[in-house]
Design a protein around this nucleic acid. Structure first.
Lengths: 141, 141
DNA sequence: CTTGACCTTCCAACGATGGGAAGGTCTATG
DNA sequence: CATAGACCTTCCCATCGTTGGAAGGTCAAG
């Protein structure tokens, strides 16, 4: 299997496969005499593992830990669980931040006439104009 | 006002102020004879606008649009609202993705014993091992 | 043998930010 | 007035994950 086929089989671009190899996330794969990379079934399996982990938002560093645990048949499941929960917490904090932004923006947008007139509470808020009563700002979120 | 004071007054690091100037997000500020940047009250106002927009997750490009609208006293509030809603949609799609990741991961982690034993559904899922019945995978989210 | 699809390596860019070096300026104190 | 230290300047580099492209080698089909 060359890199093109490996890419199709794993869903990871050839560019990224080379990159993952270069940073040592995956071990060096085989080469033909001409220098072409050759991928074994095991390599493909690893790449698919990576693809799945990426889709769950794990960073390269976290994937490196997960791969090490995967390869270690004696790992304790608690170690894996710890990595997973650490990532869940990261996700939670990102989600919270985004929701707070969304909420503030939604509120501002709702109070914007959205017509030809120039007056707009969105710009007002950004420019630091104090809001009228009953229209909380991000500070309240 | 020099860049250090401008930084304190706006909450934007000196590094970033120089960067915003270099990419044209803010107009070139004044200089002393010695080459030090000098910031007017108007410059500070603009920087604070930017700080607030950043805290709402707007990209540099979006901020550029918002600043142009802010400076245009004849803008239609609908234009501002459109930028805001476009950003809300971006936030929504990010939030959805993160929540889906979180949900899958949470589910996997809940079914992981988390003890000394090596067996772990988290690694199992990443490695593509079919899950037992009643334990949906990301595909179901 | 040629063509086109593939592969290789290397270099650069994105977006937003921080780190640091090398050098100039300003201000307060001795 | 000299000097220390806090500030300023520009310039380059690193991050993270990913993509793009150039220049060149290889392979398979016609």
């Amino acid at each position: 299997m060359n890199i093109g086929e490996a890419s199709k089989a794993s869903g990871i671009s050839g560019k990224m496969i080379r990159y993952y190899e270069s940073i040592g996330l995956i071990p060096s794969v085989g080469r033909t005499e001409a220098g072409y990379r050759t991928f074994s079934d095991k390599d493909i399996h690893t790449l698919r593992f990576i693809a799945r982990a990426r889709s769950l938002g794990f960073s390269v560093e976290q994937m490196s830990n997960l791969l090490a645990l995967w390869r270690d048949s004696n790992r304790a499941s608690s170690d894996v669980k710890a990595v997973a929960y650490a990532h869940i917490e990261e996700l939670d904090s990102k989600i919270e931040k985004l929701i707070a932004m969304r909420q503030t923006l939604q509120h501002l947008a709702e109070h914007c006439h959205g017509d030809h007139r120039p007056s707009c509470p969105i710009l007002g808020d950004l420019a630091g104009v104090p809001e009228p009563v009953g229209t909380p700002t991000t500070a309240d979120v």
